[in-house]
Write a protein that binds this DNA or RNA. Structure first.
Lengths: 336, 336
DNA sequence: CGCAGCTATTGGAACGTTCCATTGTGAGGG
DNA sequence: CCCTCACAATGGAACGTTCCAATAGCTGCG
């Protein structure tokens, strides 16, 4: 194989018979140049097999068209889908994603953030690891690094996420409308902004109905949720508002294990509407928040901050919708 | 907020009272320098709040310590876990990941690859989108871009993946040992190296046992697999070797829907052992390939190629293991 | 006919590192 | 006492773009 050396703008300019800066302008398709000249240069570039070298552009311009993405747990389908949305929207805007999976480790998150500070990234999108101190925002501001939080957020700063309170409120009200009175909230053992908000939505709906709220604690884990649901007493709750779909999946599995049919014997609702929810048995009634949309929206929010760092940080709260399927018992399958 | 300008090595050198190149060496902790000098510079850097600028280093050295990761579908839990492994291993080696989710689009894959050619990446790790032509390898070689395929591969080139043939062979032999004779393969509607190999392992085991292989086609989708399993006739197969866990999940759901208990009435095996497999009801008997390990191994393989591009490309085929749970019927739950 | 004002093109500095060749310094050997 | 050698530190070019100021060529107007 001929070990050809890399072609630079300089070479293209020589080939096209123009100055280096003319060739550079032409390759960026700058309208300051005559269309004819641009074509001349483009052809020369194609002939030589010129490949743009971003590293030099980044160094000179200070803009890398790259953003750092800190995902709290990419193996969680919800965040994986969200990541796909972020990547998709950024790609459309000509940006590329530097991925860092923190696995819910604040230490690792810190390390990756330091790394992104050195790395030429134009901004960072953060799904904070559980236990992240709010001082993170101050650090980012001090570092003058454009940033936005996703799903999990703080009081202030650019943020994109679902309306968690409204979601669990809708789920709870739906179960109330179906006649349930002993409704428990399952999940939320680990405290973060999301679990607080989801609990709160359920809590308010129960209080508004004059009923006593009850929390059954478990981690966000199918196995743990299954164990809790399996050992639920017969005179326990007749309906479970679950922290998210994974917990709801666990709940249905636990109920099945103890000989109860989810939807008929105990109603179950999820949260997130991840892909598996519709195919589940029984199909899961849940709150749809469309992680892909959140991802796309968060990318827009961050790009806005990068474009205009002085503007006030935008907070975009996406309205969820209730998706009624089988697991809540409202479906014809359980009627009659 | 004081709008301080960025500190460069030059400033650190001045603060420490040494030459620019000395400061640069010190910051890289080069042993050519006296420990005392290094400390002097480190302290000065800390005092001024120096932040290393990778973009300049990349441009000068040509090494970015960044690799491009082309994932065929990140929302697939298997690939999400694999991605986590890649990211983990690369991070340990001081590398960072540029993520591109191709969503099984060859066009998009092509576009991202062109982008990675401009972008300063030291190499690419590819999980080829379905339908990727083998000529991809030639392009990468012509571009002199270090590369390695993961899971899905071609005849040649650096590669890391599970031994798919051995996996389905083990699953099939296990079902044969349990006394099954009418065993069908479920999945593999979309043709790629993985589905061919998995089918092949099953096929060989069946032939070796003197039995007729049978393929029930469906896409890798819970819903489709469920539909196929649901409509399975009573005199159909008594055991299903599924293309992967998602298909197996669909199969169990379909069986449940049609009033059959997976494991007792029809045996089901999966492939991959994704996280949900153990928590499933019934717990899934499957072939464990540990996506995280594949990810970690593939990162090593690529780094090796980057370090020594002249070396012959390594192919690392990881041995899978059979994990016997409930869905194959071998578990005590269904005995007696 | 000269000059303003425009467009199209050019030249060269700058970005902040790394890399290489070179200098300075003190110890050890002939 | 000088020369060599190793070690420590230095100076400056180079990486391939972008950015800005400057120039050349042209048109139109007074």
């Amino acid at each position: 194989m001929p070990l050809m050396q890399r072609i630079r703008i300089k070479d293209v300019a020589k080939e096209a018979g123009v100055a280096l800066s003319t060739a550079a302008l032409a390759l960026r398709d700058d309208t300051k140049l005559r269309e004819e000249t641009r074509r001349l240069v483009r052809d020369a570039a194609a002939r030589l097999g010129y490949v743009y070298d971003r590293s030099a552009a980044v160094m000179r311009s200070g803009k890398s068209h790259t953003i750092g993405l800190l995902v709290c747990e990419i193996t969680n389908p919800f965040y994986a889908e969200l990541t796909a949305g972020v990547e998709e929207a950024l790609d459309e805007a000509g940006f590329v994603v530097m991925l860092a999976n923190t696995s819910e480790s604040v230490t690792r998150q810190r390390r990756m953030l330091e790394r992104f500070r050195e790395q030429p990234v134009d901004g960072v999108l953060i799904m904070p690891a559980t236990g992240t101190p709010p001082s993170l925002l101050e650090d980012l501001e001090r570092w003058q690094m454009p940033h936005a939080t996703v799903v999990r957020g703080f009081r202030r700063g650019a943020h994109t996420g679902p309306d968690n309170r409204a979601g669990t409120r809708m789920a709870t009200e739906h179960l109330l409308a179906l006649g349930h009175r002993r409704i428990a909230f399952l999940g939320g053992l680990v405290k973060n902004s999301v679990s607080r908000e989801r609990w709160d939505g359920y809590f308010r709906a129960m209080c508004a109905a004059g009923l006593r709220p009850e929390q059954l604690f478990c981690r966000t884990d199918i196995g743990e949720a299954a164990a809790v649901a399996e050992s639920l007493p017969a005179d326990g709750p007749t309906a479970l508002v679950c922290y998210n779909d994974s917990v709801a999946f666990g709940a249905t599995l636990g109920l099945l294990r103890s000989g109860r049919m989810p939807g008929r014997d105990v109603a179950v609702t999820g949260f997130d509407d991840i892909r598996e929810a519709a195919a589940w048995f029984p199909a899961l009634t849940t709150i749809r928040v469309s992680p892909r949309e959140i991802g796309r929206a968060s990318a827009r929010v961050l790009l806005e901050r990068i474009a205009d760092p002085a503007s006030p940080p935008r907070r975009e709260i996406l309205a969820p919708t209730l998706v009624v399927r089988e697991s809540c018992g409202a479906h014809p399958r359980w009627k009659g």
